[in-house]
Design a protein around this nucleic acid. Structure first.
Length: 281
DNA sequence: CAATATACCTGGATGC
DNA sequence: TGCATCCAGGTATATT
C-alpha cells in the first residue's frame, strides 16, 4: 500500500487534529508487528505526553513529543492509520490505539503485520535522528534530489534502474507503483542498468519523480486495494496510473500496449516504444 | 560490496 | 461451495 505519497497524505491528516493533544489512553492487540513495542513500555513513555508534531522520513512517520520522545511508525504493505471522533468497536487487525485528551482516537490497522512501531525515549532521540538520517536514502522531494546526485549514486551500478529507485538505502519512499510510473514518465526502460543512464536521462527521472509524487499527494495517494486516508476516504491517484497494473492497455502516449515483466522479483510495467531498452531518448 | 533470494503475514482473485 | 495456488503497496536478513 503505502509509498511516500500515501505516508505523506497520512501525515497531513494527522496534523489536522493531533499536535498539542496529550496521550490519555493506550491499547495494543499484543500481536507482533515487524517491530513492536510492549504496551507497558508504550504507556511508560507516552502516557500523558503532549504530541508536538508528526514528521515523515522515507516511509516512516515520526511522532514527536514535547518530552523529546519519538515514536516511529511504518505502515508496511497494508497498514492504515485512522482518526476517530469517538470510540467505535475495534475491527479485525486493529493493533494499536492512542486516545488523546481532545477526544480523538488514533488507530493503526494492519492485516499483514508488516508494519512497525518503535519507541525512542528522549535520551535516545539523537540516536534516532542519526539512524534515520544515515540509514534511509535521499528524499525525492528534497533539494538534494538532483540529476547529478543520482547519476553519482548510480555510478558503476548494474542493477536495473527500477531496483535502484526502489532501494530505500539509496532513495527514500519510492515503491513499486511509483517506480513504474516515474520510469514511464521519464521514458526510461525499467531494466536499463542504473549506471548506464545519461545525465539527460537522470534529468527526466528526477523531474518525473517530483511531479508524480506531488500529484499523487494532491490526489490523496493511490488506493489499489485498501489504502485509506486518515478519515477513511480513499485516494484517487490510481485513476491516473499510466502503466502500473495495466498489462495490454493502450499506452497513453503512443499506440503500443503496456507490457508486464518481472524485474528484481517485482511486477514491472512499461511501454516498449516510449521506454526503449537500448538508449535514452 | 552489490545483487538477488527468502522470509515475515493475511486476504483477495483465480482456477479446478 | 470448497480448496489449492498465486499474487499483493515493504524491508531485514541471508546467500551468492
Amino acid at each position: 500500500m503505502p509509498e511516500l505519497p500515501e505516508v505523506e497524505v497520512t501525515r497531513r491528516g494527522l496534523l489536522q487534529d493531533l499536535p498539542g493533544a496529550r496521550v490519555q489512553r493506550l491499547w495494543s492487540s499484543g500481536l507482533p508487528l515487524r517491530a513492536t513495542v510492549s504496551l507497558p513500555r508504550l504507556r511508560r513513555h507516552l502516557q500523558g505526553e503532549q504530541l508536538s508534531t508528526v514528521d515523515r522520513r522515507a516511509k516512516y512517520l515520526l511522532f514527536r513529543f514535547a518530552s523529546g520522545t519519538i515514536c516511529s511508525m511504518h505502515l508496511g504493505m497494508t497498514g492504515k492509520i485512522s482518526l476517530l471522533r469517538q470510540q467505535e468497536p475495534r475491527h479485525k487487525h486493529d493493533h494499536l490505539e492512542l486516545q488523546f485528551d481532545n477526544g480523538v482516537i488514533m488507530r493503526f490497522n494492519d492485516a499483514r503485520r508488516f508494519g512497525a512501531v518503535a519507541l525512542w525515549p528522549a535520551k535516545t532521540a539523537e540516536e534516532c535522528e542519526r539512524i534515520f538520517s544515515s540509514r534511509e536514502g535521499l528524499e525525492p522531494l528534497g533539494t538534494d534530489f538532483t540529476a547529478r546526485a543520482l547519476m553519482q549514486l548510480a555510478a558503476g551500478r548494474r542493477a536495473p534502474v527500477k531496483s535502484f529507485l526502489m532501494n530505500g538505502r539509496l532513495i527514500a519512499g519510492i515503491g513499486n507503483i511509483y517506480a513504474n510510473e516515474i520510469l514511464f514518465a521519464a521514458g526510461v526502460h525499467p531494466q536499463r542498468a542504473a549506471g548506464s543512464l545519461s545525465l539527460a536521462d537522470w534529468d527526466r527521472v528526477t523531474s518525473a519523480t517530483a511531479q508524480i509524487l506531488q500529484e499523487a499527494i494532491s490526489a490523496g495517494g493511490s488506493t489499489i486495494a485498501d489504502f485509506l486516508g486518515i478519515s477513511g476516504h480513499p485516494g484517487y491517484f490510481q485513476l491516473q496510473l499510466k502503466v502500473y497494473g495495466r498489462t495490454d492497455a493502450v499506452c497513453s502516449q503512443c499506440n503500443s500496449r503496456v507490457e508486464r515483466l518481472v524485474s528484481g522479483g517485482r511486477s514491472t510495467w512499461f511501454c516498449p516504444q516510449c521506454q526503449p531498452l537500448n538508449k535514452g531518448r
